[in-house]
């Protein structure tokens, strides 16, 4: 990937992907700042990582699991105590456009 591809971003696309509405001013400000950040990140593109395994965990382990024995679920008050809008013990959301 060349430099111009990795040091600019389509801020409309990405903010939509992240589902964050930005004001016009924010977009303008971020475009500049994130452009600088990406330029700074160019350092990464120069590292020789040929054959290097990625690190997902600092101290990897395997098979960390739990037996299948059920415990007590939340009561409905715990579930709904922070809900911005609810009805019939369910969370109300504005109409979902299509499935």
């Amino acid at each position: 990937m060349n430099e111009s591809e990795t040091n600019s971003m389509d801020i409309d696309y990405v903010s939509n992907l992240a589902r964050i509405e930005l004001t016009v001013d924010e977009k303008e400000k971020f475009r500049g700042q994130l452009g600088d950040v990406l330029k700074y990140f160019q350092k990464l593109q120069k590292v020789d990582v040929e054959g290097v395994e990625p690190t997902a965990h600092a101290f990897p382990r395997y098979n960390v699991w739990d037996e299948d024995s059920p415990k007590e679920p939340y009561n409905i008050d715990q579930v709904m105590m922070n809900a911005p809008q609810s009805r019939n013990n369910q969370i109300v959301v504005p109409k979902v456009v299509e499935d």
Partner: peptide
């Protein structure tokens, strides 16, 4: 907002290898 957008970008289609995966390898 700035960080969530930067992070979403680094994982997004076409940029994952150049950013996120590369960062994970450099982390090694």
């Amino acid at each position: 907002k700035r960080r969530c957008i930067l992070g979403a970008y680094g994982l997004s289609s076409g940029y994952y290898d150049a950013f996120y995966l590369r960062a994970q390898k450099t982390r090694t």
